[in-house]
Design a protein around this nucleic acid. Structure first.
Length: 517
DNA sequence: AAAAAAT
């Protein structure tokens, strides 16, 4: 029911947008009544078959703004073998998987074939789904083109094309692929195009591939939401200093900390920090793009489900991932690009909750910190004194233990071989008890092993959840009341409140519609 | 100074 108010947007409910009863019912079941600005702006036009140019970040409810109208439009007609009816392109595998989850959630009243085409997993199942005829095809560009070249896929039946996170695709060098894909799809299609920013290359792309698009823009204040407490933390610049700083911080925050994402700038740092945290008995997982895909999925799932308290991640996890209720974000490294800072800390303080972010900064990070402060328009407070009081530890570049020269540049290949040889003996001390060995000296575990650890962990968890499913005949098991017994009683996890807050990606308060043409 | 993505 919409009552008259001065601002139309506030009065809107989902039932005002023209969505089908099936879709509305799924939305209602999910607990949502009010569309976000991007949803309110885009859905009616998308339903009419118009092209939409949505300028919005993740975190604005953008995903549902194309999923819901697509579901409504898909109710007429059916898919033919190898000819998907719709195609959604995503820059990362995790985002693609997340979009699939949205189609499953809101498409529960529909009988749709959904296919997810991403790299790192086998072709077999993907081939089968294509062969069966996909109503919804969600893909990362590389794997999509691979399937096409193998003749498993025809794109000339695509009625709706979604290009999501276009500016990020640009960063990742996907634009030529995107252009190729766009050219394979008949121009009679409808195109829904989303980008957080509009650099010239992206504008060019929209001019080429969109027809008279409706432009819906949601402004993101470059400032982070006010419900996130931000602090800078001084640290010496040596890796072991930073790790110590982080551990101290984690311990100090322990009481308030439900779960945390710890961002590093580089994959190798993710690996190293992950290993280090395991050695110090932190309940940590890792996520970066060089990890085995199954481990990636499992780590993310475990973190979402509360089976892991800490997730050490590269920027693959910075944008778009919808993990509700992350209490803390730690930046182990100051991000080099200021916008990444906003994305990273935006993983906490979701749906109006409060969140805390700590950014570890060293002397050499000053200019990046400055850039961030310029971007967000405020100074970030220091947690415990600024860098003028920091003490740099002495010592060589990388302390070592019975090993050759400092291992830094150009280590990759020859060290991988070493790693394999040494793995056996090094396994032994992985779970070594804490001792007085300086942190740095514990850090010499081979990088290649991280994927292993991740995998083993993932495998264990997969087995465990499989057993749980078999073990409990009760599939109406409530989270919270009926927790598996293996949750140690003395260490009962604080229950999450399952209340639904906001819609999907949810809209931070600092966003609003600024333009609609 | 990076990360991401087909193999």
């Amino acid at each position: 029911m919409s009552s008259d108010t001065t601002i139309a947007q506030e009065a809107l409910t989902f039932s005002d947008l023209g969505l089908s009863p099936k879709v509305l019912s799924a939305v209602t079941d999910a607990g949502y009544t009010q569309p976000t600005p991007i949803q309110a702006g885009a859905i009616p036009h998308a339903l009419l078959g118009k092209d939409v140019l949505g300028i919005a970040q993740t975190g604005t409810g953008k995903t549902a703004s194309f999923v819901l109208p697509m579901l409504t439009r898909l109710e007429k007609g059916r898919a033919r073998a190898r000819m998907p009816r719709t195609l959604i392109l995503e820059p990362t595998r995790e985002l693609a998987a997340q979009v699939e989850e949205n189609f499953i959630k809101y498409g529960k009243n529909h009988k749709l074939n959904i296919a997810l085409l991403i790299g790192g997993v086998s072709f077999d199942e993907q081939d089968k789904k294509l062969e069966r005829g996909a109503d919804v095809l969600i893909a990362t560009p590389g794997r999509l083109l691979d399937h096409r070249e193998r003749g498993k896929l025809l794109l000339n039946g695509v009625e709706i094309l979604v290009i999501d996170e276009a500016d990020r695709m640009l960063d990742m060098g996907f634009i030529p692929d995107i252009e190729r894909i766009c050219e394979m799809i008949p121009f009679t299609r409808q195109t829904l195009f989303f980008s957080a920013t509009m650099p010239p290359e992206i504008t060019k792309l929209t001019e080429k591939f969109l027809h008279a698009p409706v432009r819906v823009e949601v402004s993101k204040a470059a400032s982070a939401a006010t419900n996130i407490i931000q602090r800078l933390v001084k640290s010496g610049s040596k890796p072991w200093d930073k790790r110590e700083t982080l551990r101290n911080l984690m311990k100090a925050e322990d009481a308030e900390l439900k779960n945390a994402i710890i961002f590093c700038n580089r994959k190798i740092e993710v690996s190293e920090l992950f290993r280090s945290l395991l050695k110090y008995d932190f309940d940590a997982g890792a996520l970066h793009g060089d990890m085995d895909q199954r481990a990636r999925m499992q780590m993310l799932a475990n973190f979402r489900d509360g089976k892991l308290r800490y997730l050490v991640a590269s920027d693959v996890a910075a944008r778009g991932l919808d993990i509700p209720d992350v209490s803390h974000v730690f930046n182990y490294d100051v991000p080099i690009h200021a916008e990444d800072y906003v994305h990273r800390i935006g993983r906490t303080g979701r749906a109006g909750r409060s969140g805390k972010s700590f950014t570890i900064a060293t002397r050499s990070d000053t200019k990046y910190v400055d850039a961030i402060e310029r971007l967000i328009g405020t100074k970030i407070e220091w947690h415990d004194g600024d860098l003028s009081t920091v003490t740099e530890s002495e010592g060589e570049e990388q302390p070592r233990r019975g090993r050759g020269a400092p291992r830094r540049a150009g280590r990759k290949d020859e060290d991988r071989k070493d790693d394999r040889k040494e793995r056996g003996e090094r396994k032994k001390d992985r779970h070594a008890k804490r001792d007085e060995t300086p942190d740095a000296a514990r850090e010499e575990q081979p990088v290649a092993e991280v994927a292993d650890i991740a995998e083993r962990r993932a495998r264990k968890d997969a087995i465990r959840s499989e057993n749980e499913r078999k073990g409990s005949g009760n599939h109406h098991e409530q989270r919270g009341d009926a927790r598996p017994q293996r949750d140690r009683p003395g260490r009962h996890r604080q229950e999450e409140d399952d209340a639904t807050v906001g819609f999907g990606d949810d809209v931070p308060a600092f966003m609003r519609i600024v333009a609609k043409v």
